[in-house]
Amino acid sequence: MGIEWLKPAVFFGSMLYALIGVLVFWISFIVIDKLTPYDLWGEICEKRNLALAIVVAAMCLGIAVIVAAAISS
């Protein structure tokens, strides 16, 4: 198990899966932002809506767990 992760195929495969995971996460956040009746980013940053920020953070964690489970299986 030593330095097996340093092999180019393993390293670039991990980087590719990480980029795919970030891309899927980003696209799903944009889709959810478009589906909601108001601008999530404006509500959180400009109006300082803490409750919405907590809900969006929970949603982000849920999407991240789903993406990680999909990639690792």
Rank of each mutant, 00 (worst) to 15 (best):
K47G: 04
F11Y: 11
P37R: 01
V56Y: 07
I27C: 04
I30T: 11
K47I: 02
W26Q: 14
L50M: 14
A53L: 07
A51T: 12
I66D: 00
P37A: 02
M15V: 13
N49G: 01
P8F: 03
L6D: 04
V24F: 00
R48N: 14
W41G: 10
A68P: 01
I66W: 00
M15H: 04
I71E: 05
N49Y: 02
A18H: 08
L61R: 10
F11P: 05
F11T: 09
A68G: 11
M59A: 15
M59V: 13
E46I: 03
K47C: 01
N49Q: 01
A18E: 05
G13W: 01
W5Y: 15
A69V: 02
L19S: 09
I54C: 06
A64R: 10
I3Y: 15
S72M: 12
S73D: 02
C45Y: 15
I20Q: 02
S14N: 15
A58H: 08
Y17L: 13
P8Q: 05
E4S: 15
L52Q: 03
I27D: 02
A53T: 03
A9G: 10
L6P: 02
A70L: 12
G62C: 05
P37D: 07
V22Q: 07
L35Y: 04
A53Q: 09
V22E: 10
A18C: 11
M15F: 10
F29W: 11
V10S: 05
C60V: 07
A53W: 08
I44R: 02
G21P: 06
A18L: 12
G21H: 01
G42S: 04
I44E: 01
K34P: 05
V56G: 07
I71L: 13
D39V: 06
P8N: 05
V22K: 10
V55G: 05
E43R: 14
M59D: 04
K34F: 11
S14Y: 12
R48H: 10
K7S: 15
V56T: 11
I44Q: 01
D39T: 07
V67G: 07
F25G: 06
I32C: 12
G62N: 03
A18S: 13
L16G: 08
G2Y: 11
N49V: 00
I71N: 02
D39K: 08
E4P: 12
M59F: 14
S14W: 07
E43K: 11
C45V: 15
A58C: 11
V67D: 08
E4M: 15
L23A: 14
S72K: 09
Y38I: 09
E4T: 13
L50H: 15
L52K: 05
V56E: 15
M15G: 08
Y17C: 06
A18T: 12
A70K: 00
S73I: 06
K34T: 07
E4N: 14
L61K: 13
P37Y: 06
L40N: 13
V31Q: 01
F25T: 11
I3Q: 14
I66L: 11
M59S: 11
V56D: 09
E4Y: 12
T36M: 13
G62M: 04
